[in-house]
Design a protein around this nucleic acid. Structure first.
Lengths: 251, 251
DNA sequence: CAGTGGTCTAGACCACGGG
DNA sequence: CCGTGGTCTAGACCACTGC
């Protein structure tokens, strides 16, 4: 069992206090000094905890006044964003996953670029259909570089959570970059998602990396519209969301 | 003129050094101690600077080894994400905006909730069409609460950047929450974006707040597909991106 | 004006990675 | 084992808000 650092545990306590409306919404948090005394830690540690809440958009912070509690609490952690199965369970749905096709291939240009691998390298491609409580929700095309692919390959095709299995194998995701846009269903999408070719889908392309910055997967996920939305919090303190121009592809 | 804090200026310098491939990609940054000495500041200040780069996904960080430079540099700041005009200029396009309709109304339920205002309150609604280098790109339906609406109302209808005007009026955005999903064009969308009713559009709903957490605007922006994508960086260190379940609306 | 959060310092100890 | 970043402390001064 790992011991979480002090500031994370404090942040967790404050999260719960806020969720139970101990202060607001619109209410004011105690001052940093008061919290430091209350928890028996230094002000610096309290500030680390509050920084976490700030990045999640749970509290404001400005010089001169106490922090103000915002009403909306987007309570979701990195693990839930990273794993379809975990996310589904957290919203009370039953996740499900079926491999439609998988195999080793020579990496194409896009895979070489996103997985940062050389020209001759092999990747393990998996086409997987995801259900939410029995209904098709998303079609996932994932490419794994050699070492990760070797771990994924022997998995049963109805494995619900690949992420959780990889973690047991010591593969941890630390960072992910997501690109969200819109795409039209191709014949394969249509077949598995039970829609028509040409129907619009919400697309999330994702590259996940380990703590050392080494790419672990490159995935293109296509969601049926109307069942899922992506929420991002952006602020002066940290700006993880950017808008990108895309060249109209000739397709 | 405002003096930027030391750690922000250092982060800026490191950003440039990285952009000019002084270390990588894949290279290692100097140790925190070395940087502290080099810049003549304490290690804590260096850590603040590096934290900024980490949140943007520019460098890794793990105990035991030096930080590693990642190759992709998403160089875009909060101001560019917040303002269509600024963003357009930063990618070398000419922004343009035309008000199609505007006026005061009683806030509906959604506006009351998102702008955190009472039942009788008035909002100023603006329907604005945005161009990128002359071609329609996005249709924007924004609601401003009373005080902000009063500032926006007298603006000429071809004002390119409302955000920049508001800043000159002392209205600063500090936080924004974005929800991204897919929607079908209605008759009005189709007319102004030159597409067909029913065509899919990329939708970004946004609430912006000031440093005190007071809502400044609630907006629903609909983008023509293929010209824009949203990019988010997510990590164990901060998780601003979440996936949300939406109830299939009967509309 | 007093109280707040923002910045910064100069230390300390520890957990972890890699040789 | 050494060097690294992660955590934490106990101070200090300043900028800003709100009374």
């Amino acid at each position: 069992m790992k011991e979480e650092p002090r500031y994370r545990r404090i942040a967790e306590e404050l999260r719960h206090a806020i969720a139970e409306h101990a202060y607001g919404p619109g209410g004011r948090l105690p001052s940093e000094g008061a919290l430091a005394e209350q928890y028996g830690v230094s002000r610096g540690t309290i500030r680390q905890a509050l920084m976490l809440l700030r990045h999640d958009g749970l509290v404001t912070s400005r010089r001169g006044t106490r922090r103000v509690v915002l009403d909306d609490a987007p309570v979701q952690d990195f693990a839930q964003m990273q794993s379809f199965a975990r996310w589904a369970r957290s919203i009370g749905e039953v996740p499900d996953g079926v491999v439609i096709r998988q195999g080793w291939h020579r990496a194409d240009d896009e895979e070489q670029r996103h997985l940062r691998i050389g020209e001759g390298a092999q990747v393990f491609r998996v086409l997987r259909l995801r259900h939410l409580s029995g209904r098709p929700a998303m079609l996932e095309r994932t490419s794994y570089p050699e070492p990760v692919g070797a771990i994924v390959e022997p998995l049963p095709t109805d494995t619900v959570s690949v992420t959780e299995f990889l973690e047991r194998g010591g593969v941890y995701v630390a960072d992910a970059e997501h690109t969200i846009d819109l795409v039209r269903a191709d014949a394969e999408d249509a077949e598995h998602l039970h829609c028509l070719a040409g129907d619009p889908l919400l697309r999330e392309r994702r590259r996940s990396t380990d703590p050392a910055g080494v790419p672990l997967e490159w995935s293109e996920d296509r969601y049926l519209p109307g069942r899922v939305a992506f929420v991002v919090h952006n602020s002066l303190a940290s700006t993880p969301l950017t808008r990108h121009h895309t060249i109209p592809a000739p397709e």
